[in-house]
Structures are given as structure tokens and as C-alpha cells.
């Protein structure tokens, strides 16, 4: 799940993880930017680097969440191959791991996406542990670079396990198992970034899923153009004040609303021209609680 900052991609990612858990499944919701957005959303304290249950569904499904820490992911990775033990902890204390994940941004992204791949393909008793893994990914401006792991690491690591790892991740990200959804608002910048990101991902051969239009508002005007004269008559019929301030105030509000709607409509057309499936999610006026997430999940998956 990607999208411009502020479009609500964490919320949409969480709703999708919940929706996919329905039917008694287990899903994993992953964040990689250290923002602790999942914890915030579910009203929990900061999540450790550990898969832990954050929500359940009525039919026995559950959502687990994981905040990937690149340092710990590197340690885990090194440990898997080289059995570091106490020496690994010493490295961490000295900042060596921070250093290694900082010097090579590509390396950092391979570790993050690598962790997602590991969770996605993990099995227990010959069954996949997770029915689905939802990644709250970096925003549209960085998504191409983040998911194009092979290119980034190929520049730095020409051989070795990191290279193999990045190739495996790249293969998964380009397979039908992956779908990148883009969250947007009906506002100019997010729509522009959505268009750009989809172009970029297309070029990289990474499968794109839905365009999610978030925080949409239902149309309030039936389309009949309102005039001040009609307003005055209508207000009188409803027994409301018909003074000039009220009439011109309501008139200005209706006009601004119409302007806004026209702009939204043209942006909607621009998004539709991308040719991806589109889904619109309602604005949640009273904030995001569990019921709201369930509503979003139903809309996202078309199960409403």
C-alpha cells in the first residue's frame, strides 16, 4: 500500500489486513519506516520488532503487526548465515549495524523487503503461516526505488548472498503474488503522484492493484443550480431566517462546494484513465475506530 503522505495509506493498509483476515485467516500488517503508525492506529504502545496480534475478527481471524527495524533485520539476517551471537550485539552497541544500513540505502531496502518476503513465504506444517501480508510501504515519491531492490543493490553488491537475496525479493515483487495499491485523495498533488507512481511501477514491471480514492464525500447537490431567489423562497418554506447574510452565506457555500466537486470530478476522470480498478472509501468523520476500519475493509474488498 503506497500513496502520498497524508492520504491515509496506513489506515487503508490496516483495513485491508483486517478484511483479508475475515474467514478465520491470519494476516500480517507490516510497517517499515519506523513511524509506529500501526501502533498509533490501534491505540497501542510502540510495537517491537516482533509479530504480534493487534486485532481479531468475529470468525476467528487475526491480524498480526510487525514494525520492521532495519538494524534488527540485518542482525537477524547475518545471524541466519553466520551465527554471530554476542559479537552481533557488540556490533549493534557500537553502531556498526546502523552504519551498515545507512551507507547503502539499497541494502536497507533489501533487508526491509526481504523481511516481507520471508513472512509471505513462511510455512508451518507445510502451510503458509500468513494468508496475506499487507505492507504499509513508503510513500509514492519513494515507492519505485524502494521496490526496485535489484537495481539498487546491483550497483553496490555485485556478488554474494545479498545479491541472491535481492534477486529473490525482486522475483516475488514481480510475481502475481504481489499487488501494489495506491491510495490517493481527490486533490491535485496526490493524484499527480498517483499517476507518476503508477507509470514508474509499470515501467519496473511490478504489478499494480487498485487505485484507492480515500476520504471521498458523497455528493450533496442533486445538480439543480441554486439561485439566491430560490434560496430565499426555500428558507421561508422551511421557516428559517431569510435575511441577506443567511441567503448570501448559504449561496457562497453551495457555490464553493460545486467548484470543489467539479475539480474532484476532473481528478476522478484523470484517475479512471489510468485503467486500474478504482475503489472509493468514505470519509470517516468521527475518526478511525474498529467499526470504521471494518467499514473500509468491506468497501475495499467489495463485501459490503
Amino acid at each position: 500500500m503506497t500513496g502520498k503522505g497524508g492520504t491515509g495509506k496506513t489506515t487503508v493498509a490496516a483495513a485491508l489486513a483486517l478484511g483479508l483476515a475475515a474467514g478465520g485467516h491470519r494476516t500480517l500488517l507490516v510497517e517499515v519506516e519506523g513511524r509506529q503508525g500501526i501502533a498509533e492506529l490501534f491505540g497501542l504502545g510502540p510495537l517491537p520488532y516482533e509479530e504480534r496480534r493487534v486485532a481479531g475478527t468475529a470468525d476467528g481471524g487475526e491480524v498480526r503487526a510487525l514494525a520492521v527495524d532495519p538494524e534488527l533485520a540485518l542482525l537477524e539476517y547475518l545471524d541466519m548465515f553466520y551465527k554471530l551471537g554476542a559479537a552481533g550485539r557488540a556490533l549493534r552497541k557500537f553502531g556498526a549495524i546502523d552504519f551498515a544500513t545507512t551507507i547503502a540505502p539499497g541494502l536497507r531496502d533489501v533487508l526491509l523487503t526481504g523481511k516481507v518476503k520471508e513472512a509471505t513465504t513462511r510455512t508451518a506444517d507445510r502451510r503458509r503461516v500468513y494468508h496475506a501480508v499487507v505492507l504499509d510501504a513508503p510513500p509514492t515519491g519513494r515507492i519505485g526505488r524502494f521496490l526496485n531492490v535489484t537495481a539498487e543493490t546491483a550497483r553496490l553488491a555485485k556478488v554474494g548472498p545479498i545479491k541472491t537475496q535481492s534477486e529473490n525479493v525482486a522475483a516475488l515483487l514481480r510475481s502475481p503474488m504481489t499487488s501494489v495499491h495506491v491510495v490517493t485523495l481527490l486533490e491535485e498533488m496526490p493524484v499527480q503522484e498517483t499517476v507518476d507512481a503508477i507509470g514508474e511501477l509499470n515501467g519496473l514491471g511490478i504489478p499494480i492493484g487498485k487505485v484507492v480514492v480515500n476520504a471521498g464525500r458523497p455528493p450533496l447537490l442533486t445538480g439543480t443550480k441554486v439561485s439566491q431567489a430560490e434560496l430565499r423562497r426555500g428558507l421561508a418554506a422551511a421557516g428559517l431566517p431569510t435575511d441577506r447574510a443567511t441567503v448570501s452565506g448559504l449561496y457562497a457555500e453551495a457555490k464553493a462546494h460545486l467548484t470543489r466537486r467539479e475539480l474532484e470530478e476532473s481528478l476522478r476522470v484523470e484517475l479512471a484513465e489510468l485503467g486500474q480498478p478504482m475503489v472509493e472509501l468514505p470519509l470517516l468523520p468521527s475518526g478511525v475506530d474498529r467499526a470504521a476500519l471494518d467499514t473500509l475493509a468491506a468497501e475495499l474488498l467489495g463485501t459490503r
Binding site: R217, L220, T222, E230, L231, R233, L250, E253, A254, H257
Partner: peptide, 13 residues
């Protein structure tokens, strides 16, 4: 008075 009703809903929202 549909148009006025619409305008009142816009105002309420």
C-alpha cells in the same frame, strides 16, 4: 425546494 434542501445539507456538513 430541492435546491435549497441541497444547499442546507452542504451547510450542515
Amino acid at each position: 425546494h430541492d435546491a435549497t434542501a441541497d444547499a442546507l445539507r452542504v451547510h450542515a456538513a
